[in-house]
Simulated assay, not measured.
Amino acid sequence: MDELVIGADLGGTSTRLTVATSAGARLATVAGAGGNPTTHGVRRAAAELGATARLALSGLKPGAVRAVVIGVAGRATLDDERAAQAFAGALAAAGVTARPVFVGDAEVAFCSATPHPDGTILLAGTGAMAVRIRDRRTAATADGLGWLLGDEGSAYWIGREAVRAAIAAIGGTGPATALAGAVTARLLAAPPADPAHRLRSGLIRAVAARPPVELAALAPVVVEAEAAGDAVAAAICDDAAARLVRLVGDIRGPRDADPLVLNGSVVREPDAPVGRRVRRLIAERFGGEVLTPADGIAGAAWLAVRSLRPQWPDERLAEVHALLGQESS
């Protein structure tokens, strides 16, 4: 059997891991529970990685794994040697002796979409940031500041704007919108009766009682209202797209011909309200091919192959990249 590689993604809601040969054949892809160390803590996240690796390697030879690349949001946590050692120990307990290399989720997503070394990626899911990639590493970042300081245009931001619009409509300070009823239904089990100020207060209390990031769960409410023709929801989508494209403009010139990758729940789908608007604005302002990654862990596996086979020519590595992408579709 060829030497094996592992590519993994430590997400807040799931740990995803693929085992592949160095030639690009994916042998097993599995998902476990959330494994992001920032969200769940190092000990729990490392244990989940180990459990997922054992499941993926069932029937394979863990000792044949020669390279491991793990993508993780907030990878600064893994700069702590003790934290990195916890993950290496969890893999070793599963029989994998290769020491893992940790890279940012933006780098993994970019490399999942293209083998090109340079370009730009716009990530817009719960949070939002644009990243300039040079030699497959982060060279510059716009936003990615978290809910308190930024993440403009993200699902969190869209959810927050939905609540603000609903409260304005209820209080008579903003236009009528279907978001008023939809947001109320999502946040309040038993909406108070009139007067309106009680409903307004109820919504404010409901939001304050939850972790701020949970506002991201309201983004689909805006999508549904926009699809139904709600003008306020459409305006929120317009604003979100404009803010996201502005992030791209902070780190990318109009004549840049390198690939531009879109990823994340807000922009990934070309027919989604914000995704559609973002693509239109990008086409008006920037050059270069617009891509979406097939599968984030394919990029992690490909980076592992590159580390294992640095002598291979670009053409051979591009073939491996294509194979990994086909396996993920």
Rank of each mutant, 00 (worst) to 15 (best):
E3H: 06
I6P: 07
I6T: 11
G24R: 03
A25H: 15
L27N: 12
V30P: 06
G34R: 03
G41T: 02
R44W: 10
R44I: 05
A46Q: 06
A47Y: 01
T52A: 12
L60I: 06
R66V: 11
A73R: 03
G74E: 07
D79S: 13
A90D: 05
V96F: 04
P100K: 03
V101R: 13
E107V: 05
F110R: 00
H116T: 12
H116F: 10
I133C: 07
T138K: 02
L145N: 11
W147H: 15
L148P: 05
I158N: 01
G159S: 07
G159E: 04
A165F: 01
G181L: 04
T184S: 13
L188D: 11
L188M: 06
P191D: 04
R198W: 13
E214L: 10
D230M: 07
A240F: 11
A240P: 11
V245D: 01
R252W: 07
D256H: 06
D258Y: 08
L262H: 01
S265D: 14
S265G: 15
G275A: 05
V278A: 06
R280P: 12
I282F: 12
I282V: 15
E284Q: 14
R285A: 15
F286N: 09
G287E: 12
L291R: 13
T292V: 15
T292A: 15
A304E: 01
S307A: 14
L308Y: 05
R309A: 14
P310Y: 10
A318L: 02
